[in-house]
């Protein structure tokens, strides 16, 4: 999240583009997390009813 927050601050307070390498790291993490999260949710959702 650091890269994302700093990018907001750079854009709005300094008018500068993001630091690409740091933001790319965050973006890749986000995509990987989305795939993992959705995959786990998809697998687990059939057991929700019995666990609730």
């Amino acid at each position: 999240m650091t890269a994302v927050i700093v990018s907001y601050q750079r854009a709005l307070l300094d008018g500068l583009p993001p630091q690409w390498d740091a933001l790319a790291y965050s973006a890749l993490f986000g995509v990987a997390l989305f795939i993992l999260g959705f995959w786990y949710f998809d697998r687990a959702k059939d057991d929700f009813e019995s666990a609730l």
Binding site: V4, A27, G30, F34, G37, F41, A44, D47
Partner: peptide
Amino acid sequence: VVQIVMNLGFAYLLSALAVF
């Protein structure tokens, strides 16, 4: 857009984990 993807990832993972 970066935030939406990351937040969705966390939301799916955590919502399913929280059930168990």
